[in-house]
């Protein structure tokens, strides 16, 4: 799988470059035009990124995720989710690096091949930094009302993780 996937990028680039030669398009100019707009995207995203990352770093450093996880762990047990997993699920949508720290902690404490270790792998591998996505996607617009975008994204990820962890018992 890793062998195949390492071929994907160069093959895609080659295909597109050859296509541009065949169709006699100016590949060089096109690439420059595209990369120019990257600066606009970054300038637009910058205030959003700094605002969210500042809060997330405070949240991560304080260990508040652990405190909240303690608090909600009785409710989580109904779904068959241990306390450490609850902490991972809390921090995952906020910070990829923070979640990786919790994941490593779980592996070190419980072992990577235990049920908790494998559930943590499913949770980390099948979820995304939802807050980062939803902030940066809207950075080029004036949209302030996101509607239920974030709750829907979180809820569906959560349900997916619960089902995935449940399936682990049979694999």
């Amino acid at each position: 799988m890793t062998v195949i996937s390492s071929y994907i990028i160069p093959v895609i680039f080659l295909t597109v470059l050859i296509a541009s030669m065949v169709k006699k398009k100016n590949a060089y100019n096109a690439f420059i035009d595209g990369s120019r707009s990257a600066i606009d995207l970054i300038v637009g995203a910058f205030p959003y990124l700094i605002t969210i990352m500042l809060a997330v770093e405070v949240f991560r450093r304080s260990g508040a995720a652990g405190v909240v996880a303690d608090f909600i762990s009785p409710a989580m047990r109904i779904f068959g989710i241990p306390k450490e997993l609850a902490e991972l699920m809390l921090i995952r949508p906020l910070s990829g690096a923070g979640a990786l720290g919790v994941l490593e902690n779980i592996y070190a404490t419980y072992g990577a091949d235990t049920y908790i270790g494998r559930s943590a792998s499913v949770v980390y591998g099948s979820s995304e930094t939802v807050f980062y996505i939803s902030t940066i996607y809207f950075s080029q617009t004036n949209i302030k009302k996101l509607g239920p975008a974030i709750p829907f994204a979180l809820l569906s990820t959560f349900i997916g993780c619960v089902v995935g962890c449940f399936c682990l018992r049979f694999f």
Binding site: R118, S121, V122, G125, S126, S127, F152, A153, L155, S156, T157, F158, I159, G160, C161, V163, G164, C165, C167, L168, F171
Partner: peptide, 17 residues
């Protein structure tokens, strides 16, 4: 070895979403 469950998790979450 968690990939099977991981794929189920993403498929379920996508459908629910």
């Amino acid at each position: 070895d968690f990939m099977g469950a991981g794929i189920i998790a993403t498929v379920v979450s996508t459908i629910v979403g």
